[in-house]
Design a protein around this nucleic acid. Structure first.
Lengths: 113, 113
DNA sequence: CCGAGTGTTCGATCCGTATCTTACAGTCCC
DNA sequence: GGGACTGTAAGATACGGATCGAACACTCGG
């Protein structure tokens, strides 16, 4: 039997953490990294589900990038979905903001690093 | 000639950083530590200039504690003043909140870790 | 079926930082 | 002046996390 084509996924569906279950420490640690901060910001400036993991201009290799997305998922900041061969992302604005009101706005609004 | 008694200080006056000059990354990194988070919270629950560095119930030695306060100063979160033999602290609520609106409230309000 | 494209996983490495111990520098009180 | 007390500075250590390279899984298009 054929596994359903689209939506079926890369291999195993990515593991997501509900923002409601995320500790402050985890959230802050996830955002306290230049690469992840840039990812979140670029993600915030794009429509949902339009950016695949590889489509970010960050100065790290694929492996590190994959790791960073794993951290962002674990902090309830990003949701991922498999779309054909690529994994597309979405910033969990509402949900994360419900758990940590203002935090996302703050890091997005802030200038510089 | 006698150096002025109180206010003169331990040795050198502690170096402070204006919250306005603090980067988001620095602020988040400073708060993304369990010990410092506890310090900030205890400090928030006390009147200004009433807590000396040694007067916190944290599970680290004096040296590490001194280091943590140095980081908090560098992030514009804490102001210190020498009062006789001890160094007393104050949480820079207003100033820090002006630079990062809501961040302090968030970490103070949040339950657990 | 094979090849190109995309991500994840594993192992190794490297660097920052949190920590301790020890030593030192002040202040206060007797 | 001599302690007791408080905090900082310096050196050593240990651990976590960010990174890379290589190998592997999966999808899609010839």
């Amino acid at each position: 039997m054929a596994k359903q084509a689209v939506g079926g996924g890369h291999r195993a569906a990515p593991v997501h953490t509900d923002p409601a279950d995320v500790s402050v420490l985890t959230a802050l640690s996830a955002l306290a990294d230049p690469v992840r901060l840039q990812l979140v910001r670029e993600l915030a400036g794009s429509a949902e589900w339009t950016r695949s993991c590889g489509g970010f201009d960050v100065p790290v290799g694929k492996a590190a990038l994959s790791h960073h997305f794993s951290v962002l998922r674990g902090a309830g900041l990003v949701e991922q979905r498999d779309e054909g061969p690529r994994r597309v992302n979405r910033l969990r604005r509402e949900e994360f903001d419900a758990r940590f009101p203002g935090l996302l706005d703050l890091v997005l609004r802030a200038d510089g690093d």
